[in-house]
Design a protein around this nucleic acid. Structure first.
Lengths: 200, 200, 200, 200
DNA sequence: AATGAATGAGAATTCATTCAT
DNA sequence: AATGAATGAATTCTCATTCAT
């Protein structure tokens, strides 16, 4: 009998390695050869786990959004106050550790593919779902805040969620370019202050 | 030295053509052959204007930020009211015509490269400058608004500018994936209303 | 040694499956993986029955000529009149059901290999034997016809057999390309009429 | 200015080299690398002359049928008597020099492709046209023979042409396997004698 | 100055075969 | 005995870049 291998977990392992490499060089620029070398396997074996390079990308994207979600949840789960949760989300989401940064690079890589290749509807679907789910989660936090009378009843949670998530993505983008020259902490504090008090 | 001027302008021309093609397929997937064909020149002649493909990207990035800036200015120049300018910026920037959308793809392409190749400091510099200049311009508008008593004196224009620009980029990103399912107009209106009145 | 008998019959079985697949896609384009999957066995087990793919081809070729012969015999065995046998041979051989057609593709595949690899004398031998045996069988029918005074005594049965067999192969070849646009029935009838009556 | 190259004639040249190699090993087994090496050019240059390996095959098939036709015509053009033309066609066509033999191998290769890949309709078309044209040409010779009272008026030229061409193809096939052990001359003489005089 | 012919490194993918279990 | 995991050689094709003309 041949060596017994857990195909699914090896698939994940390879995808994770490919993710790291892709985060550095971009998915397209990361060759199968490179991935398999790093995974300590022969070039041909790749195709025992994936039908395609495209198939690998699919696995990566799944892992990507899972990790991203997992990471965010881990940041928020020990916080009780909804407004504090949102502030943390904005602050932590934007500043990011290396782990987060790598994900963002892949996130943008994926985004590019969705927008460029009309073919990859599958990716677009993943992406949409992720954004929609995220929005729902954030909107729920705003609703909590309402319930605790921290924000006005007539505030539209959906809209605010959209704004907050977009803002996080935008800040991540900028932060990675401007890195030491941007005060994310200050920005997020000010933002919440302003949201609460208005500017006028 | 009229020849040199000609070279420079032809260089720009080629970059613009390459920009359009790259906006559709991504820079890496756009071949020299394709670019020169569209530019109505021989493949070899490319190297009379650029030392290599990387050199072309540099030119593209310059043109990119120029165009982006030009586009934004054109949207704002006939508006007098500062708050109206900001609202327009947010709305127009995010909803975007095709022109804007194409630029965004390249924008992200460039961003990708800045983040990937620590080597390409040059791109990072362009990018930083663009972000810093944009922020300054938006901050100036906020200052105008203050001067006209439309917002409180103690609001930090710099911080608000940072937020607004990040928000625009984030919304563009999301808009291009969610396209028909996101109400950018509603979002930007609500955002300004909230900024002005606070949430509490 | 019952095991050896089992091996032999399994070998035949596999060869038959491989034959069907090869008839559709050609031998070279049919992978071991495909064959073993269809045979309901592991890829590695293939090498318990064959030393390599070439060895499989050998088995296939044997089976091929056996099948071809079996098929022809089955068409002729219930016909008494020799001339009718020949006419049937020509008509049935050329028009062919799918069974015949599949064999023809393999037949040509094999022929190709004989001609290409001067090395594979083994295949050439199989092929020669098949042609020689077929010729002998057809010549015997002509002799029968002579004995029954259906054709002149001075006709050369050997030569006629050679012609008939070549004609069948040629017609099969053409029929498979021209399929609906060739009237094999008419052709074979006319041919026999002309053979019998002369053209002048 | 770059080297001036007659693309069309170089294309033909390469196709001819590929034809020779394919005649030995089969088209599929002949690699681009091999072809370009023999043509004294770099691997990449192949694609300056052909879009595809498939494109090469198309050129080969065209050249193949042209050469075949040219060869046959050259055998027949100095013969006046129609029956002699037909006899020559059968004899020469079947015995073949090396040139003819190579063509036959490719001919069969092409045939296989037509029959196997339903996709390659283009090749099937070439093949059909070739067969139809050949039949028409041979039928015309039979009509000549009729006009000169060498064969009966009621003989069907079309049918006879079909038979003759199929017989030639079949004999070629067999000849290449049986080579020294088949007396093509005797066969063709007997065939015509029998056609003329009948067998009864 | 301009060109396109030529090139070869490198990419994804396939597959017969081996071998540890 | 049977298996399928692993492998690497080989294949087609792309493309930035060079260079003779």
């Amino acid at each position: 009998m041949p060596k017994i291998v857990d195909k699914k977990s090896r698939r994940s392992e390879i995808a994770k390695i490919a993710m790291e490499l892709s985060a550095q060089k971009g998915f397209d620029k990361t060759s199968i050869r490179e991935i398999t070398t790093h995974a300590g396997m022969g070039k041909g074996s790749f195709y025992d786990y994936f039908t395609d390079k495209e198939d690998l990308l699919e696995e990566i994207v799944q892992v990507l959004f899972e990790e991203w979600t997992r990471l965010i949840i881990s940041k928020l789960e020990n916080i009780d106050d909804p407004m504090e949760q949102l502030a943390t989300l904005l602050r932590e989401g934007s500043v990011m550790g290396d782990e987060f940064a790598q994900l963002m690079i892949l996130y943008v890589d994926t985004w590019r593919r969705c927008v460029r290749d009309k073919s990859s509807d599958k990716f677009t679907q993943y992406f949409k779902s992720f954004l929609i789910d995220s929005k729902a989660a954030v909107a729920a936090i705003f609703e909590n805040a309402k319930a605790q009378n921290q924000i006005r009843e007539d505030v539209d949670s959906e809209v605010l969620a959209t704004i907050l998530i977009a803002l996080i993505d935008g800040l991540i983008l900028h932060y990675m370019v401007l890195k030491p020259d941007i005060d994310i902490d200050g920005v997020s504090q000010s933002f919440f202050k302003m949201l609460q008090d208005g500017m006028k």
